[in-house]
Amino acid sequence: MKKIYIIAIVMIAAAIILLTTAAEDMSTYSTFADAARSGDRVKIAGQLSKDKEMYYNPEKDPNYFSFYIRDTKGDEQKVVLLSEKPQDFELSEQVVLTGQMKDDAFVATDLLMKCPSKYKDEEVYIKEEGK
C-alpha cells in the first residue's frame, strides 16, 4: 500500500474524530427556559422587547446594559450585557445572545444584532423642507 493512502486514512480518521468532537461546540438556539434549567452557556435568538425598559447608565456602571428579549418560545426575559450599549441597539430586530442564566437575569457576554436596514435601505429619502 502506498504511504499516501496511509496518510489519507489517518487524515480521514482525524477528520471523523474532529467532527464528532466539534458536535459539542454546536447546539440549537436555546430558550430562556432551557437556559434556566441547565445553567449552561447557550446561544439564544430572540426579538427585542421595544416597549420594555432599556437601562444603561454609564455613571453607575459603564459595563452594565440591561434590556428585555422575547425568545422563540415567547418568553420574555431580562438580559444583562456586560458592556456598553451597542450603537443602534433600538433599531435591531433579531438579537442573538451568548451567555448563561445567573439569578434572575440572562447574562450575555456576546451579542449580535441584525438591523434590516444596515446594508440596504428600502426607504426613499425625501429632502427635508427648507434644505
Binding site: 454609564p58 459603564p62 459595563n63 452594565y64 444583562v80 456586560l82 458592556s83 456598553e84 437575569a105 447574562v107
Partner: peptide, 14 residues
C-alpha cells in the same frame, strides 16, 4: 457594580 459579575468581561471605564 450592579448585577452579576464576570470581572474579566468588563472592559469599559467611565
Amino acid at each position: 457594580i450592579e448585577g452579576a459579575s464576570d470581572e474579566q468581561m468588563r472592559s469599559n471605564i467611565l
